[in-house]
């Protein structure tokens, strides 16, 4: 009897709901609820600090809710992304992972159990332009000088399958750079190897190299994306259309860094509330100041805009897909 009454009252409520009220209901839903924010890395590091920042300020802007950060590290963010994708689509589980997983999905890499085009996109917090870095001991001063090298120089990258590896390999292969890619340099191994002189250069995110460059250990010779004026854009140095397409793909990765997403098909009213809370969090001066201190200034985008960017990045021409797959295959030993 009680049950029937519950259904009846729910139905009544549903009938009475108008568009405007839908959002209110969405907001009411999160009252006294716990939202799990999954971070696909171990505690510490960029993804974790950003995730904790986002969770803290979303909680403030979603009255009555409690945000809990859960670290799910492993398999280069795939474990965390799979977990977010497979979670219940009630809006109570969202999270963050490396945008580079787009590559894994495009080439159909092992372990991927998510479809980024179907996920519920809440927003992205930053841009992380890529740079070509050269160690300061090297005589190479510009991109043209790198291209003109007679013998291949050593570049370092993380393990195959990682976003850093994919980007380095597709760019060096299509640009036909005289570069030998050495793998297995995780964390800051590459920076130390550049200090020792074993490694001459690297293609990486600008934020991970800012301290290194400020200390005078290296120089940027080209950049992909971002508004920095201290280094030429790689796209201005290259003529080949194939290469330009790939540069554009890498740039789209950098543009949508530090993203927040949920599993597919979160109810629209709840998504609206989540995006609203995310937006308020991003506009919070205090969050902006704190992100600035993490050396990762806030450059947000929300909901649909991010979803569109993701779909666009996933929809590569067969030729590009081929290039990606080849790049990944040709360098495997």
């Amino acid at each position: 009897m009680k049950h029937a009454f519950k259904i009846f009252s729910l139905a009544l409520a549903a009938c009475a709901a108008t568009q405007a009220q839908a959002a209110d209901e969405g907001a009411a839903f999160f009252k006294d609820k716990t939202v799990t924010y999954i971070v696909a890395t171990a505690p510490g590091g960029g993804y974790d600090s950003y995730g904790r920042l986002v969770a803290e300020y979303m909680q403030r802007n979603l009255p009555g809710s409690t945000f809990v950060v859960k670290n799910m590290p492993g398999a280069g963010h795939i474990i965390g992304a799979n977990a977010i994708y497979a979670s219940k689509a009630d809006g109570l589980t969202i999270g963050s992972f490396n945008t580079g997983l787009i590559y894994n999905q495009i080439v159909g890499a092992q372990g991927v159990k998510f479809d980024l085009s179907k996920m519920s996109w809440i927003g992205k917090a930053a841009s992380d332009p890529r740079v070509v870095v050269i160690a300061s001991q090297s005589p190479i001063k510009s991109f043209a000088e790198l291209q003109a090298q007679k013998t291949p120089v050593n570049f370092a990258t993380a393990g195959p399958g990682s976003a850093s590896y994919v980007e380095t390999v597709i760019l060096t292969n299509t640009l036909k750079l005289p570069v030998k890619n050495l793998t297995g340099y995780n964390g800051t191994d590459d920076q130390l190897a550049m200090r020792r002189g074993e490694i001459i250069g690297s293609i990486a995110s600008r934020s991970s190299y800012s301290t290194f460059i400020e200390n005078g250990y290296g120089r940027y010779i080209a950049q992909i994306g971002g508004n920095d004026k201290d280094v030429p854009q790689l796209s201005s140095l290259v003529k080949d259309q194939k290469a330009l397409d790939l540069i554009a793909l890498v740039q789209s990765q950098g543009d949508i860094a530090r993203l927040t997403a949920g599993p597919p098909a979160i109810p629209a009213d709840r998504m609206k509330v989540l995006i609203e809370a995310y937006k308020k969090a991003m506009e919070d001066k205090e969050l902006q100041a704190r992100a600035e201190k993490l050396e990762r200034p806030v450059e947000p985008a929300y909901g649909e805009d991010v979803a569109k960017a993701i779909v666009k990045a996933l929809n590569q021409s067969d030729e590009t897909k081929q290039l990606l797959a080849e790049a990944l295959k040709s360098d495997k030993k």
Partner: peptide
């Protein structure tokens, strides 16, 4: 002194140093 952390724990520590306004490096 290098701004290059020696362990994963120190990597987190370095992030915290940056927040505090300490710029690790030879300076």
């Amino acid at each position: 002194f290098f701004g290059i952390p020696g362990s994963s724990g120190m990597a987190v520590m370095m992030g915290a140093f940056l927040i505090l306004g300490i710029q690790p490096g030879p300076a």
